[in-house]
């Protein structure tokens, strides 16, 4: 694909600023509008820019980690924040909170709800990445379709492409059973 330098650069700039915004949503969420979902979804929106610029390869370059791992990791963090309090004798998902006075920033509050939100963020991010893997991987789609045209990978499935014609299926089954008898 031909790529324009201008588009490329501007997309990268926009991409990173949106990513920063998404992180802001994530960390500010406990006190202002935002949170893991909105953050993750915003990051997803950033990805769509990269996709527009360079297809799925560009998306992969932006996030070298496998989407599997991101999603699994997010879920793992989420579940761990849920379970760990049980191990220390508290209720499921019971959060602890710390407050500290730091000179410049004033009172900083941190709760264990944050890792939970991070888990949410990662899952949403991973989901969006996966969607582009699933529907946006044009080369692989072409390859699969090509294969089905050639009749190897998908041959069996394409046989039933005309499911609506019941008689045909019936005939197929009969022919198959006859073949098996031979």
């Amino acid at each position: 694909m031909k790529r324009l330098l201008v588009v490329d650069t501007s997309v990268r700039v926009v991409f990173h600023s949106i990513l920063v915004l998404s992180l802001y949503f994530l960390f500010a969420g406990h006190n202002q509008p935002g949170g893991g979902f909105v953050g993750g979804l915003t990051a997803g929106a950033a990805i769509s820019f990269r996709y527009v610029a360079g297809g799925v390869a560009e998306v992969r370059r932006a996030f070298p980690l496998r989407p599997w791992t991101i999603m699994g990791g997010g879920l793992l963090i989420g579940v761990l924040t849920a379970i760990l309090p049980i191990l220390s004798g508290n209720a499921l998902l019971e959060h602890a909170a710390w407050e500290a006075d730091i000179a410049i920033l004033g009172t900083v509050k941190a709760t264990s709800a944050l890792p939970f939100d991070i888990g949410v963020y990662l899952v949403v991010l991973g989901l969006i990445l996966m969607m582009f893997e699933a529907f946006g991987d044009d080369e692989a789609i072409d390859e699969a379709v090509g294969a089905s045209v050639r009749g190897d990978a998908l041959e069996a499935d394409s046989v039933v492409s005309d499911l609506f014609e019941l008689e045909q299926i019936r005939e197929l089954q009969l022919r198959r059973s006859r073949r098996d008898q031979l």
Partner: peptide
């Protein structure tokens, strides 16, 4: 719950279990 955004507090704390199910 040490949070000012009540909706977010509900999501991650009061009803965190829902959110856990949701990300699943």
């Amino acid at each position: 719950a040490k949070g000012n955004n009540i909706v977010n507090v509900i999501l991650v704390d009061f009803r965190g279990l829902d959110t856990l199910g949701e990300i699943t």
